[in-house]
């Protein structure tokens, strides 16, 4: 099974994946094949993280995503992965992708 791995520790929220995807799928205003979520910014007042800031982005796939099957068949990267400015997206077989998770930074594995 193919998947997209996001090392979202480093996602900058730049919207390139969203727009690249919209252009590929020809989606209308308000429609997305991949969509950013945003958490924060907020400062922890409790727990081990007290005093530290939290602010991260995580793109998630919608039903419209077809993992750019056409492109991948031709040897190209999916549009979102190719254009990710933050170098935090990877595409491949899920069993290969999980090996990239390093235990130090936050990852999310997305599949259809």
């Amino acid at each position: 099974m193919k998947g997209i791995l996001i090392n979202y520790e480093y996602c900058t929220g730049c919207h390139s994946c969203e727009v690249a995807c919209k252009k590929q799928l020809g989606l209308a205003k308000g429609e997305f094949g991949i969509k950013l979520t945003e958490t924060g910014p907020f400062k922890y007042e409790t727990g081990d993280e007290a005093g530290k800031w939290e602010w991260f982005f995580l793109p998630v796939l919608t039903k419209a995503c077809d993992m750019c099957e056409d492109r991948v068949t031709k040897g190209k990267m999916p549009m979102c992965v190719q254009h990710c400015q933050a170098w935090c997206m990877y595409h491949g077989e899920v069993e290969d992708l999980v090996k990239k998770m390093d235990g130090n930074t936050r990852f999310a594995l997305l599949t259809r």
Binding site: S16, V19, K23, M79, Q82, H83
Partner: peptide, 22 residues
């Protein structure tokens, strides 16, 4: 009709901002 980044160009390695994609 459409614009893609060029992964073989070393300046941006095929990454593009939303403005250029549009």
């Amino acid at each position: 009709e459409k614009v893609e980044g060029d992964p073989l160009n070393s300046v941006a390695s095929g990454k593009l901002c939303m403005r250029c994609l549009a």
